[in-house]
Computed example of a mutant assay.
Amino acid sequence: MASLIKDRSPSPQLDVEINLLRELLRDLERVRVGQHPGRRVLDDAPVLENWETTVRTEPCLTGIVHGHPRIRDRRTTITSQLWLLAPTLGYARTLSRFYALGEPAFAPEDRH
């Protein structure tokens, strides 16, 4: 779930996500260089039987983008997974980058 940032004060609620992402990054870097999980790690891991891949919905933003490094200006886009939303501070952080927020599609009072 994305964390809503309301002002410029510290955001200690991000500690859990930061630790999870650090652990993920550590594991990805190990696998990248050929250090795959050993028997001890997998023996302690939960077992998933009858598994298959699927898709789940993640919070994201959609809107008309300007100044994106890979998407032409004035194109409607959907961002990667939303991590931080700070509308009063004018920004959002997705998995891949920061976005400066322009005008919302709806005024806050229009959403019910």
Rank of each mutant, 00 (worst) to 15 (best):
M1T: 11
M1Y: 07
A2N: 03
S3V: 13
S3I: 15
K6G: 03
K6F: 06
D7P: 00
D7E: 02
R8W: 02
R8G: 15
S9M: 04
S9A: 09
S9Y: 03
P10G: 06
P10Y: 10
S11V: 09
S11Y: 03
S11H: 11
Q13K: 08
Q13E: 12
L14I: 09
D15F: 07
D15I: 09
V16M: 05
I18T: 14
N19Y: 09
L21R: 11
L21H: 06
R22T: 09
E23M: 10
L25Q: 12
R26N: 10
R26F: 06
D27A: 08
L28R: 12
R30T: 01
V31P: 01
V31G: 00
V31T: 11
R32G: 05
V33S: 10
V33C: 01
Q35T: 04
Q35R: 06
Q35A: 10
P37G: 06
G38Q: 06
V41E: 14
L42E: 08
L42V: 09
D43H: 09
D43P: 01
P46T: 12
P46H: 12
V47Q: 07
L48A: 08
N50S: 14
N50R: 04
W51G: 07
W51C: 11
W51S: 14
E52G: 06
T53K: 00
T53S: 01
T53E: 03
T54Q: 04
V55I: 05
R56M: 11
R56I: 13
T57M: 15
P59L: 04
C60Y: 05
C60N: 11
C60G: 07
T62M: 12
G63R: 05
G63V: 05
I64V: 15
I64S: 04
V65W: 09
V65K: 05
V65S: 10
H66G: 00
G67M: 11
H68F: 11
H68W: 04
R70L: 15
I71C: 12
R72I: 05
R72N: 13
R74I: 01
R75H: 15
R75K: 14
T76Q: 14
T76Y: 14
T77A: 15
T77N: 09
I78A: 14
T79L: 07
T79N: 06
S80P: 01
Q81M: 12
Q81S: 14
L82K: 06
L82Y: 07
W83I: 03
L84K: 07
L85E: 01
L85F: 14
P87W: 03
T88D: 09
T88N: 03
L89Q: 10
Y91C: 02
A92E: 05
A92T: 03
R93L: 13
L95F: 12
F98D: 04
F98I: 02
Y99L: 13
A100W: 03
L101S: 08
L101V: 05
L101W: 04
G102P: 02
P104K: 00
P104Q: 01
A105W: 09
A105P: 00
A105K: 02
F106V: 05
A107H: 15
A107P: 02
P108T: 12
P108V: 12
P108M: 07
P108K: 06
E109Q: 08
E109K: 05
E109I: 11
E109T: 06
D110A: 15
D110Y: 11
R111W: 12
R111P: 03
R111Y: 12
